[in-house]
């Protein structure tokens, strides 16, 4: 009987267990037994959570200025477990961005971006930018005061970009200012374009990883005769399952203890006293406030560009100067700057 069923399937799906094992069973380096090397899998898992909860929320969300806020109010107050699904979506977004940043730091400080992995670093940078943008558009969809004014401020920042700024702003807002066409744009970006792009990038990201193999590390206290790899399946797979469950528990607890509320509805006529973006934009927000318009924007763009091509700059430095560990020190400065500016923006009122 069992054989008959198995035969029925294998006739139609000509793939054997051995082949699946072959496909998935990449030997995993031992260092991945340490949890902080699994930070890459965390955002991927959260990304799946976001897709699931995002699709659920889209069943009720109505992307138009007249209905957006009301539909979110309905989700939060009327729909069964709506507050929970919405809180999960919000908290998973927060955790995802945090995980992406931590993952990138880990890659950076362990030098995992170096030759031959420069391209994957750049794919990762694209994923970072996509993550930040999807966070921004998602927040704008709520259409409460701060999300509306956050988007307006972002559009004004766009304006100060030389040459292309106005063009991009018009493209983003579907006009010179926030109007009835803006919200659908944000929605399509948030719920279709960016997720699709990110899935594509993730496939490339993981594909390159698989082709190149994970960077291997040896720790000094490890005996040399210890096996250097372990199995992806089931050993590492179990680790990922564990991480997934811990994340789900964490999300559930966060959603119940700190459920997402709903601020006042967007009012284009009343500017709030304090406009602040979500925390992950605090850095750039503080940066923009420190320097005058165009310089701040251009310098931010320059920093992003440098981050993008960092593997090559780093390679050049290591090749042509004697400061082979320069990246670590630059990294430390960068992290201090990142944390410092974020904290600064978090504690000041304006």
């Amino acid at each position: 009987m069992v054989t008959a069923v198995r035969n029925w399937f294998s006739e139609r799906l000509p793939i054997s267990g051995v082949q699946i094992a072959e496909l998935t069973n990449e030997p995993v380096p031992n260092h991945l037994k340490r949890w902080w090397f699994c930070l890459g899998g965390t955002p991927a898992y959260l990304f799946v959570v976001q897709i699931v909860t995002g699709i659920l929320l889209a069943f009720y969300y109505q992307p138009a200025p007249s209905t957006a806020y009301e539909s979110i109010r309905t989700i939060t107050h009327d729909v069964s477990y709506g507050w929970y699904i919405r809180s999960i979506h919000k908290w998973a977004a927060t955790l995802m961005i945090a995980a992406v940043i931590l993952h990138q730091m880990r890659i950076y400080f362990t030098g995992a971006y170096r030759k031959p992995r420069e391209l994957n670093w750049m794919v990762g940078m694209c994923l970072l930018l996509c993550t930040l943008t999807i966070g921004f558009t998602g927040y704008s969809l709520v259409f409460e005061q701060l999300s509306y004014w956050g988007a307006t401020v972002a559009a004004n920042i766009c304006d100060t970009v030389p040459f292309a700024g106005v063009f991009f702003k018009r493209l983003l807002l579907a006009g010179d200012s926030y109007n009835s066409q803006t919200l659908p744009r944000f929605f399509i970006l948030h719920a279709a374009v960016l997720p699709a792009v990110m899935i594509g990038l993730l496939v490339v990201h993981v594909g390159i990883l698989r082709l190149q193999g994970i960077t291997e590390f040896r720790f000094e206290n490890e005996p040399d005769d210890k096996p250097q790899t372990f199995n992806f399946f089931p050993d590492h797979f179990y680790t990922e399952l564990t991480i997934g469950l811990i994340l789900m528990i964490l999300l559930s607890v966060l959603a119940t203890v700190l459920p997402v509320d709903l601020g006042p509805k967007a009012d284009p006529l009343t500017t709030p006293e304090v406009i602040k973006p979500e925390w992950w934009f605090y850095v750039s927000f503080r940066w923009l406030k420190l320097f005058s318009g165009t310089f701040a924007v251009v310098s931010s763009g320059f920093i992003v560009f440098v981050m993008f091509v960092w593997p090559f700059i780093d390679g050049w430095i290591r090749k042509h100067t004697r400061y082979t560990e320069a990246s670590v020190w630059i990294g430390i400065v960068g992290v201090f700057l990142l944390v410092g500016l974020t904290v600064w923006e978090a504690i000041v009122e304006h």
């Binding site: 477990y81 929970y84 564990t242 469950l245 789900m248 528990i249 559930s252 607890v253 959603a255 119940t256």
Partner: peptide, 15 residues
Amino acid sequence: IGFLGLVFLASLVLV
């Protein structure tokens, strides 16, 4: 994993 699955269940019961 089994234990965490049950903790997850418990958190959902709280929800």
